[in-house]
C-alpha cells in the first residue's frame, strides 16, 4: 500500500468519525442528509459482498466491516435516536434519489468487468458512490449556509477522493494496476466535490470576508 492510499482511507475514516462524534456530542442530526447516508449503506453493502468470497488482508476486512457498521449506525441515529421527523428541515432533503439508483443500475449493467451478480453489484456501488453526496450538497445549497459539521465532513470526504487520484497514478506506474471503472467513477466523484468547494468558497468564504470591516 502506498502513502496516498493510506491517507485517502484515513481521510475517509476521519470523515465518518467527525460525523459520529458531532452527532453524539450535539445530540442532533440537523443538516445531515438521511438520503445520502442511506445511499452510503447501499454502496458499502453492495461493494463489500466479497467479504464472503475473497480475503485480501486484515486491514481490508476490518475497514470494510467498519464502513458497513458505521453507515448503518448513522442511519439509525438519524432515523430513530435523534430523529429529524419533527423538523420542517427534512423537507430540504427532497432530492430524487430514484434517478441516482436507476442511473447507477443501468451504468453497472453496461459497464462491468464480468456479467456476474458480484461484479455488477460492485460496479453499481462505484457509480452510486460517485453521486451519493448529491442529496447532501443539494440540502446545503438550499439552506444557503453550511455549519462546521457538514463542511468538515464533506471536506474530509473530498480529501479522501483527492488522495485516491495520486494513488491510482502510483499504482499504474509502480504495479501496472489500473482499474478503469474505479478511476472513471472516482474522477466523476472528485469533480462533484471540487464543484462544491468552488461554490462554497465563492458563496460563503468570500461573502464572509467581504462583510468584515
Amino acid at each position: 500500500m502506498n502513502i496516498f492510499r493510506i491517507l485517502g482511507d484515513l481521510s475517509h475514516l476521519t470523515s465518518i468519525i467527525i460525523l459520529l462524534h458531532t452527532i453524539n456530542t450535539n445530540k442532533s442530526t440537523t443538516g445531515i442528509s438521511l438520503k445520502t447516508q442511506i445511499l452510503y449503506v447501499i454502496v458499502f453493502i453492495t461493494r463489500y459482498l466479497d467479504l464472503f468470497t475473497k480475503f485480501i488482508s486484515v486491514y481490508n476486512t476490518l475497514m470494510k466491516i467498519f464502513f458497513i457498521i458505521s453507515s448503518v449506525y448513522i442511519v439509525y441515529l438519524i432515523q430513530y435516536k435523534y430523529s429529524q421527523k419533527h423538523m420542517v428541515k427534512q423537507d430540504l432533503d427532497n432530492f430524487k434519489v430514484e434517478y441516482l439508483l436507476a442511473g447507477s443500475l443501468l451504468a453497472s449493467l453496461i459497464f462491468n468487468y464480468k456479467f456476474t451478480p458480484l461484479e455488477i453489484l460492485w460496479s453499481f456501488s462505484l457509480w452510486l458512490e460517485s453521486v451519493a453526496i448529491l442529496p447532501q450538497l443539494m440540502m446545503l445549497t438550499r439552506t444557503g449556509e453550511a455549519d462546521m459539521l457538514t463542511t468538515n465532513y464533506i471536506f474530509c470526504l473530498g480529501l479522501y477522493r483527492a488522495f485516491y487520484i495520486p494513488n491510482w497514478f502510483y499504482r499504474y506506474f509502480a504495479e501496472g494496476h489500473f482499474d478503469k471503472l474505479a478511476v472513471f467513477t472516482g474522477l466523476i466523484q472528485t469533480l462533484l466535490y471540487s464543484d462544491f468547494f468552488y461554490i462554497y468558497y465563492k458563496n460563503v468564504i468570500q461573502a464572509r470576508s467581504s462583510k468584515l470591516p
Binding site: 475517509h12 464502513f67 461484479e119 482499474d179
Partner: peptide
C-alpha cells in the same frame, strides 16, 4: 477464470 482487476481498494 479470475476477474481482470483485483478489487482491493475500499
Amino acid at each position: 477464470s479470475e476477474s481482470d482487476v483485483d478489487h482491493d481498494e475500499l
